[in-house]
Simulated scan of single mutants.
Amino acid sequence: MIYHFLVPLSAQLGAFNVFRYITFRSIYALLTALVLTIVLGPMLIRWLQKIKCGQYIREDGPQHQCKAGTPTMGGLIIGMAVMCSTLLWADLTNIYVWLTMFVFTGFGVVGFVDDYIKVVKKRNKGLSPAAKLGGQLLVAGIAVSLLIMEPAYSTTLSVPFFKNINPDLGWFYLPFAIFVLVGSSNGVNLTDGLDGLAIGPMIVGAGCFALFIYVAGHSEMAGYLKVTHVPGVGEVTVFCGALVGAGLGFLWYNAYPAQIFMGDVGSLSLGGVLGFISVLAKQELLLTIVGGVFVFETLSVILQVSYFKFSGGKRIFRMAPLHHHFELKGIPESKIIIRFWILSLLMALMALSTLKLR
């Protein structure tokens, strides 16, 4: 809204020209979302406590019973801060911004329904796996279908480290991109098991893809760095800035010991939109590096379940996802969290290096 109000005035007052720049608006989108989350966080925590919207803790895992009753569904504050900040600072005529907000909201609705059933209706299992997956597939399918129909968007696939390998997947790109969104969403959801564990790598990932999506939308930079140019997609950098800001604000209250948890409304929306941003930036495969922590957590569950079935009850890890394995080995929770954050930062730097290693 600020963009549409102030940019036309730049003809009369040159100082308003600064609002044309994506980088400037991204910084202020970050700051706006950060302030909104920190200021409104205590009110949301008190409200969730009032309606007894507390986290259910499993009894068959590491002992976290002291966390039972901690307010959950904190993803609501992330969603509100991101959406308000994006609407305030982004160019709202940009189709990619609206598609990104649709994915973020759609996956958030699926997570909200799951949380509502679990913590408000007190049915600890929430949505059935089929219903949850169906909702994710529906949102992802609509978003990717609309994206592919955009004339400026290409169904080619970028391969990290190889600038001349860009296969065109054609209509096969549709199921592939849907898999990226749904896989990323569930990866973040599985990682969200310790205080601040998921939001830390999520902040790093959003910051990393902010750079990739800015480059993809900039014709000269994209040409110089040999990445796929998607005209107009750079505006989504503003959304990424808001995502980083809201994540930092949420971490203020979610850091160990957590005052609030994000719930599925947060983890599903954050994971889904991170996957979609990687698709917009034409860096789908690079998501496995940027989101390496989420990949490791997901693979640990897949390997554990598969090995358990085929070995007749044996386990690879003491417990899955992977962070629980380290907990049961006696490593303090805070140390696990910090180490996962460090790994996330290192993998993001590795991903950024691919811009030159081609």
Rank of each mutant, 00 (worst) to 15 (best):
G275T: 08
G313A: 09
W341K: 10
I277L: 15
E284F: 07
V301H: 07
P321E: 06
L328F: 13
H323I: 01
F294D: 00
M347L: 15
L349W: 04
F317M: 09
T288S: 14
E284G: 02
I289R: 00
P332A: 11
M350Q: 07
K309D: 02
F308I: 00
T288L: 14
E284L: 09
K282F: 04
I289D: 00
K309Q: 09
I316N: 03
L285G: 11
G292R: 03
E327C: 07
Y307T: 05
R339F: 03
I342D: 06
M319E: 10
V290F: 00
L322K: 04
S334C: 02
G313E: 07
M347E: 14
L352W: 01
L328A: 11
E284P: 00
I336H: 10
G292M: 12
T298L: 04
L280W: 02
S344N: 02
P321C: 03
V295P: 00
A320G: 02
R315G: 04
V279W: 05
I331H: 05
I336F: 06
S278F: 00
F310T: 15
F296H: 05
L286T: 12
F296P: 05
G330M: 10
S306R: 13
T298S: 09
R318T: 14
I331R: 09
M347I: 14
V293T: 14
K309A: 03
F294M: 09
S311V: 13
S278R: 00
P332N: 06
F340A: 10
R318W: 14
G291R: 00
W341T: 11
I336W: 09
A281H: 01
E333A: 04
S353K: 15
R315N: 09
K329Y: 08
Q283E: 06
K282M: 11
S300W: 12
S344T: 03
L303E: 09
L322H: 05
L280Q: 02
F296E: 07
I302A: 14
E333L: 08
G275N: 05
I289C: 05
L286V: 14
L345Y: 09
I277P: 01
V279R: 02
S278Q: 01
F308T: 00
W341S: 13
T298R: 02
L328Q: 11
A348F: 08
I331C: 10
V279H: 04
S278G: 14
S300C: 13
